[in-house]
Amino acid sequence: MEDLNSKIKNVIISSLELEDITPADIDDDAPLFGEGEGLGLDSIDALELGLAIKENFGVSFTAVNDETRKHFASVNSLAAFITANKQNG
């Protein structure tokens, strides 16, 4: 799990070309999107990240809905989503 989390963080940083941020700066539970204390990613970043997750982990998001938004909430929730889908698949 720990490994997966840091891998996700690396994917976030490289796919979104984030600057000045190291994996250590991303809190496992902090919101990735929206205003406030999180990473402050926007809707374009979401599209980008969806693609990167598919490429790196082989899981894809079929539709953008409230459900997927939940998965995108934090690193932890993304990890849970990836783990669950991999097992299914």
Partner: peptide, 27 residues
């Protein structure tokens, strides 16, 4: 301060007025 903190400060300040998408990403 770390640069990341400075980025965050300005981004948070701007989020009062601007949509996320047009808040500068790089500083």
């Amino acid at each position: 301060a770390r640069k990341l903190e400075m980025n965050k400060f300005f981004r948070n300040f701007l989020s009062q007025y601007l949509e996320l998408i047009v808040i500068p990403k790089r500083w």
